[in-house]
Design a protein around this nucleic acid. Structure first.
Lengths: 257, 257
DNA sequence: CAGTGGTCTAGACCACTAG
DNA sequence: TAGTGGTCTAGACCACTGA
């Protein structure tokens, strides 16, 4: 229902064109952000305001906002409002270097929070990757990784206890160089991991990880799995991590390879 | 409105629990797929059927289906139905190897379709990556990549014409080893690219690329950018690709690095 | 032509936050 | 308590597909 004195700029939207209204609203909000009119951390108009501004139903506004939130561009908070998301972090990890080392190199502060540690048996592909039977015990650990206090990754870590006798939750530190599992393996067991095979793909954040990373569900994140081997070529650890950040890799090829 | 003879199994859903209905439906459909009851390419129940089955409104059903489609698990087709998506392809690319070589190595058939070629000026970061001024012409090319006929990637390719005099659309082949730009640069210009820097991150497919890859909009895909250098360390090409597939990388570290 | 998913409306009640 | 986003309903019309 539009009142007579309705002077909102509905030129912003065009109902005579076969472009969905929600998509036009999407683009409008996008330009607000891209142009810098609304900056990260600031609030965009409320759903009610957008509804009025464009003269559409609330469902249509929500469809537009949802699309942008799924991309990770917006951050919705019940009872507070919808904010422009903190920029997708510019942090980077480098090739084979550990998370801890990568972050230190960029003069930021890495940090961890261990959510879970247990020794158990694992099924299926993880056992296969580690080259063990279903009856072998595996130390499993889950933690959140931070850069300068911002959560940037959720990691799951697995290692056969056969190689790590007496392993305990207290072995995993949450600050300093000691939080590196590479460091821990070196110090506690004298194990050096000199080879790794990574896989990279892309997945949507599920509910649990979205909450841990304080991001919107469905936001696309980098999924990296890594099998690390000791110098004898024996797989020692398997890990999988979901990263908000970008990973950088350097390749060098011998000529005439 | 539920009829008396309404014998649909609404035990599937629990309205007395603070779990959103759409989420419960989501989980139900997920188990149908995970358990193999409905296989890739097969159709899930229509929206109307799910509505009846659970006794909810159509909007609620659509919210559930949308969530799964955004994850890439479902493939909605207007007027036909909603299918379980073809599995996220198991294809893999290897480290520094070219797409063409990687695919050939796995005994599949790579193919390309060039959508666009032009010589133009480019703005901002691409010019920076290539180490050229804003006034330098750049050859730009966009293509779709296929493995055994399935579209798996959209690639954008850029190279300063300064290094590639007389470059023409006809230089880009669509089949065989010749579709490799590495191969083309070697054969036509004697240029060998021996070093590369990649960045990996994760983004949602936009409308255009989703159509090209015949996937759902918003599906998370791997975004890889690559700057390739000749043996003198001069950047020759910049490319960015969106990949449905997984990338594998091998790392080897000298001990005592 | 009937049936599918795509878009849109106009309501409703809720949980949570902040003043 | 007022205002936010979260969930849900019961409709509507559309474009496209396939029989």
């Amino acid at each position: 229902m539009r009142a007579a004195g309705d002077d909102q700029l509905e030129d912003l939207i065009n109902r005579d064109v076969p472009i969905p209204l929600y998509y036009q609203i999407c683009q409008y909000v996008r330009t607000l952000i891209d142009s810098g009119k609304i900056k990260p951390g600031e609030q965009i108009p409320t759903e009610a305001q957008l509804q009025q501004l464009f003269g559409v139903s609330r469902a249509t506004v929500r469809r537009a906002i949802s699309d942008l939130a799924y991309e990770g561009l917006l951050d919705r908070r019940r009872a507070k409002g919808t904010l422009v998301a903190r920029t997708k972090l510019e942090e980077t990890l480098y090739g084979f270097a550990s998370f801890t080392n990568s972050v230190f190199k960029s003069k930021k502060t890495p940090q961890s929070r261990v959510l879970d540690f247990r020794v158990t048996r694992v099924d299926g592909s993880i056992a296969d990757f580690l080259g063990i039977g279903r009856e072998d015990d595996v130390a499993t650990m889950k933690r959140i990784r931070y850069v300068d206090g911002e959560p940037v990754a959720v990691e799951n870590w697995y290692a056969p206890v056969r190689h790590l006798p007496g392993i305990d939750r207290s072995f995993f530190k949450e600050t300093g160089i000691e939080q590196s599992t590479y460091h821990m393996l070196q110090e506690r067991y004298g194990i050096q991991l000199t080879k790794a095979v990574d896989t990279m793909s892309s997945v949507a954040l599920d509910k649990e990880d979205a909450e841990l990373l304080r991001r919107e569900r469905h936001m696309p994140v980098l999924l990296r799995t890594r099998i690390s081997y000791n110098s004898a070529g024996v797989p020692i650890t398997y890990s999988s991590g979901r990263y908000i950040i970008t990973l950088i890799i350097n390749f060098e090829k011998k000529v005439h390879e």
